[in-house]
Nucleic acid binder design. Structure first.
Length: 269
DNA sequence: AGGGAAACCCGAACGC
DNA sequence: TGCGTTCGGGTTTCCC
């Protein structure tokens, strides 16, 4: 794993470093990072904008400007770095915002999967998202009712950000294992007690992920520790922590899927 | 509406 | 050693 460079990550105070600063200039090194019509217009419009707030919705980071919003999705390998101003970009820098003061905000993204939206109407992008799994609206009762109305396979549904916003592949596999549910179970066959277990599992897995600063898989997401505590994800052939049965891996909706075949049984109707 | 597949990416890991 | 292939993550788009 690479050593932590001279950066501030989100968790280490990006917010404090951004609010109140003015964007002097935007350097675009990979235009497809930006979900905007033209780079020229973007640079023109963002110049002189003051950063008024930093927040989050689902997997989007929201950098509020005076008249616009920047929505940042890091996807797989993206990173936001606040670092001392310098002339030359780092390897894999896709967008660098030159700020007032002595820092730049760099969007660095090895795999070019991440995206940045620049818009005066963030709701046009955010309104379709499902509830935050750690907030009030997401209850066991809500989950049961909404599973009841769907016929989809459980795992693809949980990964659907318009259903619940925030679960990715790792967290979904871990949650289903804790709740002892099969990823291919049809959503409307989940019973109230199972929905309650799933609700509990989702919240505990996400909280643990946050507590451990996320998972560092491959060489990305530096600093996380959750990868050392997976129950099933990437544990093919290893014993299930609950019953010792070997974890198996297969594909669901084009995604690598890991289960304990003993704890997570697909009930056929 | 649901499901499958392809596309977007590239560094690491693997096979030969 | 080198070279080719496969993999995987999140999301959108397209097609059945």
């Amino acid at each position: 794993m690479p050593e932590l460079p001279e950066v501030e990550t989100i968790a280490r105070g990006l917010k404090d470093g951004l609010i109140g600063k003015t964007i002097l200039e935007a350097d675009v090194f990979w235009a497809r990072t930006l979900a905007i019509p033209t780079v020229r217009k973007f640079k023109e419009q963002i110049r002189g904008q003051k950063i008024t707030g930093v927040s989050r919705r689902a997997k989007y980071l929201i950098i509020q400007l005076k008249n616009y919003n920047l929505l940042v999705h890091l996807r797989m390998s993206g990173d936001l770095l606040l670092r001392e101003s310098k002339i030359n970009p780092n390897k894999h820098d896709r967008l660098v915002l030159r700020l007032s003061g002595k820092y730049d905000l760099a969007f660095n993204d090895t795999r070019k999967f991440g995206r940045v939206w620049f818009t005066d109407d963030p709701q046009s992008i955010l309104k379709k998202l499902g509830p935050e799994p750690l907030e009030k609206g997401f209850t066991a009762d809500w989950l049961y009712k909404n599973l009841q109305s769907r016929k989809r396979q459980l795992k693809p549904l949980l990964l659907d950000q318009t259903f619940i916003a925030g679960l990715g592949n790792i967290y979904t596999d871990e949650s289903l294992n804790i709740a002892k549910l099969h990823p291919l179970a049809q959503a409307d066959t989940v019973k109230p007690t199972q929905a309650k277990a799933l609700h509990q599992a989702i919240q505990s897995v996400l909280k643990e992920g946050i507590r451990r600063n996320g998972a560092s898989i491959d060489w990305v997401y530096r600093g996380g520790d959750f990868q050392n505590h997976f129950r099933v994800y990437d544990q093919e052939g290893k014993p299930c922590p609950a019953c010792g049965t070997e974890i198996i891996k297969f594909t669901v909706g084009q995604r690598g899927t890991h289960i304990c075949p003993r704890c997570q049984v697909l009930e056929r109707k």
